[in-house]
Design a protein around this nucleic acid. Structure first.
Length: 906
DNA sequence: GAGCACTGC
């Protein structure tokens, strides 16, 4: 029977007083709302008609073998073709489609899969195997394929803007481009620009490092496009290579399109278009602050606002408004692209650089943000920290505490505006203040591209919902009873616990359903789910069945599931927030932002008109924050600060932040870097700091690595093994049943160490690396994640390669890798003391009652149940992470001696 | 007695 009663939407179930507007850009929306509505209706009608005509589709012969015979995918494929909507966004749907074509053509990639997420494993490492195929037959077939793709490209919404984009960038060096999903911006903009006259390499005479002798250097010729995720960088590069008829990356010296992501660099001498992750561009900036190989940098998906993209934006803002001395005066073109970003804020941000080249946004902007730091209840250790910080840097002349003297009210307003967004802006509200013409800048052009999305109808609950799991349950069955097939349901929940609760409830209710109704196939989806279980989501829906996917935020950006027409949005999201005063990460359930709500809603309208059920009231929706809090405002920024220092930014206070971290966060980060020895007394970066900044590690772990390389300690290879394991999540599998846990305990006996998690990880990595016959079987025997261990080995390899300047030789490595004896207790102590060099602040001592209190701050902390030391009592502990969920937990824990801690703190 | 999502020469 259908669940009924206490939960329902307005008007006999559903309330549709808030019709969907799928166009996110409000400026466009205002102008085009009517026109679009009509268009969309037409489109929808057309689609319905088409769907009726094409319902039973024969299987496509060219795509046999692969899962392409799956009805659903094929349907969407045919649909795409018919509608000439070549998908150009970078999510899973397209990825697996593109990838599948690769497989059919070349059959050379392993780890075949259908989700973008799966690509996100280690599989992309091996994608350059089809080398040496640049003979003329292949080239001509590449060209033929590119020609075939051209007509699809011409149908993209962005194609009509081609000359506008070219002309704008010929005149102005900065362009802001808003384009919705499906507009084609990520694939087409680089191609438009790569043939422009300004994109050719030029020889200039310039002093290479700013001071030395004048040299002839080449500047420009290449375009960089940044992406927040590795999969996106790789799949976009592959797609653009196909469209241009060129081999991809390092498969041929003739290749003009490549990519660069961690563990996988695929470029050639002739690369003109290079997709890379934001972090990768930052690393390139450390090596060449002037980015001399590039004529242009395209920052894509800036609205996601990871820490790295904020730093990239700051560096670029300084660069475009500077004199380009290091580039022989040749300007760098910058294109900033986004689906939803606050373009007004971005325009002002870049414009401020031109107006005030040295201090675009200054210190006072903090005020607007500071209220976000709701840390009053955490006042425990703050005063100590503040004192220490002031002592280290001094208020009047320190690099740190200097308040911005030349406060500019405009830029304050910018910070404030940017922070708060459009306060009353609901999706359909006109973005009243923004007018590209009015805000036009002599340096910056703005371009809006319409997207392609089906309309999605929004329903709100009439009353606030107490229990969203219960509400979601009712919504699922309301949809299932009311709406015809096909049309799968995607439910956004907060975490594994809510997913599993709801999963059980839906199964219970479904078992009592009338047998005449279509069946429900309930599928959970969250990051910690084993790979095989995640894959079930991408398998075709069986006949007379409706899929119900219960997902965390993983489905918001990382993974696209086809077939979804109904989205249920619980209105909450679990986010990590760093508490500066405690050095503690909190994982909390919070209301999501409007742009995230819009993103979730959009998942229903990718293949057909859809519906979105919001488990909150319209009033609550209107009160949501406009955008997600940028990561830089809610994470430990010590690594970001160190990157800036290493890049030559000494005056952190006057750095042009897109959103300025509160002073407290800056001080905390600077203090921590100072305590690690990465900064000198005057706040300048030290030798140690420079070395740490070049490592792909947090400053703490980088410090450990340097300590271990010290001849007195001499345990670098051991430290690298542990650090590699610590930088990968969940080496050990999550075990649910008691039996499994006991079984695992026995199986892991040979790799468990009583000293704690660090040495257990060391033993695990050593044993895994020493297993030469079948590592997968070894992992299964030990209840260890093989996927995680592959990632560990990647990091380990990278760290070994990066530390060759440190005192280890190839012989040392051979000797280390061939040894079989266990680490002695003495050596274990030595290793832990190295870790204390980076983690002295993450220590706690046992109290007489058996609880632990942090040595700095005297906070109660419990050992996380995932730790091998859980339930054990030792004199003192050192831990890798301090996390608050239900209470404060230490994760990655080892026992240490108090005198070691004293030695490290001294 | 517990696990949002990404990412790095």
């Amino acid at each position: 029977m259908a669940p009924k009663g206490h939960f329902k939407f307005d008007d006999e179930g559903f309330n549709d007083r808030a019709p969907a507007t799928t166009n996110i850009n409000k400026a466009l929306e205002e102008k085009k709302e009517k026109q679009e509505k009509q268009e969309k209706q037409k489109k929808a009608e057309k689609f319905e008609k088409f769907q009726q005509q094409t319902q039973p589709q024969p299987h496509s012969p060219q795509l046999n073998g692969e899962k392409s015979s799956q009805q659903q995918q094929q349907q969407s494929q045919v649909l795409n073709k018919k509608r000439k909507r070549e998908d150009n966004d970078r999510d899973g749907q397209k990825r697996h489609q593109v990838k599948r074509e690769d497989n059919d053509r070349e059959g050379q990639r392993r780890h075949q899969g259908h989700s973008g997420k799966e690509l996100n494993g280690k599989s992309e490492r091996l994608n350059n195997n089809g080398k040496g195929r640049n003979g003329s037959p292949v080239n001509s077939s590449l060209k033929a394929k590119a020609n075939a793709l051209l007509s699809k490209r011409k149908d993209l919404p962005i194609w009509a803007h081609q000359s506008e984009i070219r002309q704008s960038l010929a005149k102005k060096n900065v362009m802001l481009l808003v384009g919705e999903t499906g507009s084609g911006k990520s694939t087409q903009v680089p191609q438009f620009l790569s043939t422009e006259p300004w994109c050719r390499p030029q020889m200039v005479k310039v002093a290479k490092d700013g001071k030395g002798p004048i040299e002839d250097l080449s500047v420009g010729g290449c375009i960089a496009i940044t992406q927040p995720r590795r999969v996106a960088a790789i799949s976009l590069a592959r797609r653009v290579a196909e469209e241009m008829g060129t081999p991809l990356g390092n498969s041929s010296p003739a290749s003009t399109v490549g990519y660069s992501v961690r563990f996988d660099n695929s470029i050639s001498r002739n690369t003109k278009i290079k997709f890379l992750t934001e972090g990768m561009l930052l690393q390139e900036m450390l090596r060449d602050p002037w980015l001399r190989q590039y004529s242009a940098v395209v920052v894509d998906e800036i609205h996601e606002r990871g820490v790295n993209v904020d730093l990239v934006a700051g560096f670029l803002q300084k660069m475009v408004s500077g004199k380009n001395e290091g580039r022989g005066g040749i300007p760098l073109k910058v294109v900033v692209m986004s689906a939803t970003a606050d373009m007004e804020g971005l325009l002002k941000f870049f414009d401020a650089g031109f107006k005030q080249p040295t201090a675009a946004v200054n210190g006072k902007g903090q005020k607007a943000i500071k209220k976000d730091e709701e840390e009053t209840e955490w006042s425990g250790i703050s005063s100590d920290d503040n004192k220490a910080s002031k002592k280290a840097y001094g208020t009047p002349n320190g690099t740190v505490s200097k308040p911005g003297p030349n406060t500019d009210s405009k830029s304050n307003a910018l910070v404030k505006k940017h922070k708060n967004g459009n306060p009353e802006g609901d999706e359909s509200a006109p973005f009243t203040e923004f007018d590209p013409v009015k805000f036009g800048s002599p340096h910056i052009s703005v371009c809006f591209i319409e997207g392609r999305q089906f309309p999605v109808k929004i329903f709100y609950t009439p009353e606030p919902v107490q229990d969203f799991v219960d509400a979601a349950l009712h919504s699922i069955f309301q949809i299932h009873y009311k709406e015809p097939l096909p049309g799968d349901i995607l439910v956004f929940l907060t975490g594994q616990d809510t997913v599993e609760n709801l999963e059980q409830l839906v199964r219970e209710y479904a078992s009592g359903m009338s047998p005449e109704l279509p069946k429900l196939l309930v599928l959970p989806l969250f990051a910690a789910l084993p790979q095989a279980a995640q894959q079930r989501v991408f398998q075709p829906t069986p006949p007379k069945t409706r899929k119900v996917i219960l997902a965390t935020n993983i489905a918001e950006t990382s993974v696209t599931v086809s077939g979804v027409r109904y989205v249920i949005d619980c209105g909450k999201v679990k986010i990590k927030q760093f508490r500066n005063r405690l050095g503690l990460d909190s994982l909390l359930v919070k209301p999501l932002s409007k742009s995230a709500a819009i993103q979730r809603k959009g998942r229903a309208g990718r293949e057909a008109p859809g519906q979105c059920y919001r488990l909150y009231t319209e009033k609550d929706y209107l009160q949501l924050a406009q955008a997600n809090t940028p990561e830089i405002l809610r994470c430990d920024i010590s690594q970001a600060i160190l990157t800036m220092k290493a890049r030559g930014i000494d005056d952190i206070i006057n750095f042009p932040f897109l959103d300025r971290p509160p002073r407290e966060a800056l001080e905390k980060a600077l203090l921590q870097l100072y305590q690690l020895g990465a900064l000198q007394d005057d706040g300048a970066i030290s030798e140690v700091g420079l070395k740490i900044a070049k490592l792909p590690l947090t400053p703490s772990l980088g410090r450990v690595l340097l300590a271990a390389a010290n001849p007195d300690m001499d345990c670098l290879l051991e430290a690298i093994d542990i650090i590699s394991a610590l930088s990968v999540e969940n080496v050990f599998l999550n075990l649910t049943s008691e039996e499994k846990k006991e079984e695992a305990e026995t199986a892991r006996r040979d790799i468990s160490r009583r000293e704690g998690d660090h040495l257990t990880l060391l033993a695990t990595v050593q044993a895994y690396a020493g297993e030469n016959s079948d590592r997968k079987a070894w992992s299964e025997r030990h209840f260890v994640s093989h996927r995680a261990m592959q990632a560990v080995m990647d990091v380990r390899k990278q760290l070994r390669a990066q530390t060759t300047h440190l005192p280890i030789s190839a012989d040392d490595i051979v000797a280390y890798d061939s040894r079989t004896y266990a680490v002695t207790p003495e050596r274990a102590g030595l290793i832990l003391r190295c870790f204390l060099k980076g983690f002295s602040h993450n220590t706690a001592r046992m109290m007489p009652d058996g609880s632990y209190k942090t040595i700095i701050g005297n906070q109660t902390v419990a050992i996380h149940p995932s730790s091998g030391l859980f339930g054990k009592k030792v004199e003192a502990i050192m831990y890798n992470e301090f996390v608050f969920t239900n209470k404060s937990y230490a994760r990655g824990v080892s026992g240490v001696q108090m005198d070691w801690v004293g030695e490290a703190l001294a």
